[in-house]
C-alpha cells in the first residue's frame, strides 16, 4: 500500500448552509448508474407487459383525456388530432410528475441505506433523473410513430426539446428535493403530494392548450410555472400553439429558483437525515 496517495477525510461539526459539492456526486457516478439500473430493472420485473407499460401509461391517460376533453368538452386542437395533442402533453407531464413523485420519496424509501452507509445523498435524486429519462425516450419513440401515422411534419423546433426537458426536470427535482427533505420528518407530505399533483395536472396545459383558458383567468393561470414550458414542449414536437415566450422565460426562471431552493434545503437537512429518518 502506498501511503502517500491516501486521501484524508476530515470530519468536523457543521452548521449553517453548505455548498452542494457536486464533485462528490461525480465521484460516486458508478453508484448513480447502479441505482438507476436498479430502478429500471425493478419496475418491470414480474410484469407481463414489461417495458410496454412506459408507453401504455401515457397512452391510457391520453385516451381518457381524449374522451373527456375531446369528445365531451369538444376542445378544438386544430390540425393535430386531439389524441396526439394530449399524448404530447402527457409526455411532458409524466416527466415532471414521475420525477417529482420519485424524488420526494427517495429518502424515506432508502431509509435503510441512509442509516447504514455513507454516500452523497444527492446521488439518489440524480439517479432518478436517469431512470426518468429512459422512460421518456421510450414514450417519445411512440410519439414518433404517431406523428408518422398522422403525417404531422417535425419542425426545426424539435431541437429545442432538450431545453424544455431541462426546465421540466429542474422544476420537478427542485420540488422533489424540497418534499423529500420535509418527508423525512413529516410523512404528511406523502399524503398531500398526490392531491397537489392531481390539481397541478388540471392546472397545466396538458389536456388542453393555454389558449383555451378564458382571458380573465389567464393572469392567475400563468402563475403556474409549468404552463409555459409544457406549451413550449408540445410546440417543439407538434409545431402547433406557439408558446407565449414571456411564460416560457418565467418557467425557466422559476425552474432555476426552485432547483436552487430545493437543493439547498436538501443539503441543509442532509446531515440530520440519518438521525431522524
Amino acid at each position: 500500500m502506498n501511503a502517500q496517495a491516501l486521501p484524508t477525510i476530515k470530519l468536523r461539526p457543521v452548521s449553517g448552509w453548505q455548498a452542494l459539492n457536486l464533485r462528490q456526486v461525480w465521484q460516486y457516478r458508478d453508484l448513480v448508474l447502479a441505482f438507476a439500473a436498479r430502478d429500471v430493472k425493478l419496475r418491470y420485473r414480474q410484469t407481463v407487459l414489461g417495458v410496454a407499460w412506459v408507453i401504455a401509461q401515457p397512452l391510457i391517460a391520453a385516451g381518457i383525456f381524449s374522451f373527456v376533453f375531446g369528445k365531451i368538452a369538444k376542445l378544438d386542437t386544430g390540425v393535430v388530432p386531439y389524441f396526439v395533442f394530449s399524448y404530447a402533453g402527457m409526455l411532458a407531464w409524466n416527466v415532471f410528475s414521475a420525477t417529482l413523485v420519485k424524488t420526494s420519496g427517495c429518502l424515506v424509501q432508502n431509509a435503510g441505506l441512509i442509516s447504514k452507509i455513507f454516500f452523497p445523498r444527492l446521488v439518489l435524486p440524480v439517479s432518478i433523473l436517469f431512470s426518468t429519462l429512459i422512460d421518456f425516450l421510450v414514450a417519445l419513440a411512440m410519439l414518433g410513430v404517431m406523428l408518422a401515422v398522422c403525417k404531422i411534419p417535425v419542425t426545426i423546433a424539435v431541437l429545442l426539446l432538450p431545453v424544455w426537458m431541462l426546465i421540466l426536470l429542474m422544476l420537478a427535482t427542485g420540488c422533489g428535493l424540497f418534499a423529500s427533505s420535509l418527508m423525512v420528518s413529516y410523512r404528511d407530505v406523502q399524503h398531500i403530494l398526490p392531491v397537489l399533483t392531481q390539481f397541478l395536472l388540471y392546472a397545466s396545459p396538458v389536456g388542453y392548450a393555454a389558449s383555451h383558458v378564458p382571458s380573465q383567468f389567464r393572469f392567475i393561470y400563468d402563475l403556474n410555472p409549468l404552463a409555459g414550458v409544457i406549451e413550449a414542449f408540445r410546440w417543439s414536437l407538434l409545431g402547433v400553439e406557439k408558446p407565449d415566450w414571456a411564460a416560457v422565460i418565467y418557467s425557466a426562471d422559476a425552474a432555476i429558483a426552485v432547483l436552487l431552493a430545493g437543493a439547498f434545503a436538501f443539503k441543509k437537512m442532509e446531515r440530520a437525515f440519518a438521525d431522524v429518518i
Partner: peptide, 11 residues
C-alpha cells in the same frame, strides 16, 4: 452516516 456535534476526526 451522521455528523459529530463537537470535536474532530481525521481518517
Amino acid at each position: 452516516i451522521t455528523v459529530l456535534t463537537r470535536g474532530e476526526v481525521d481518517l
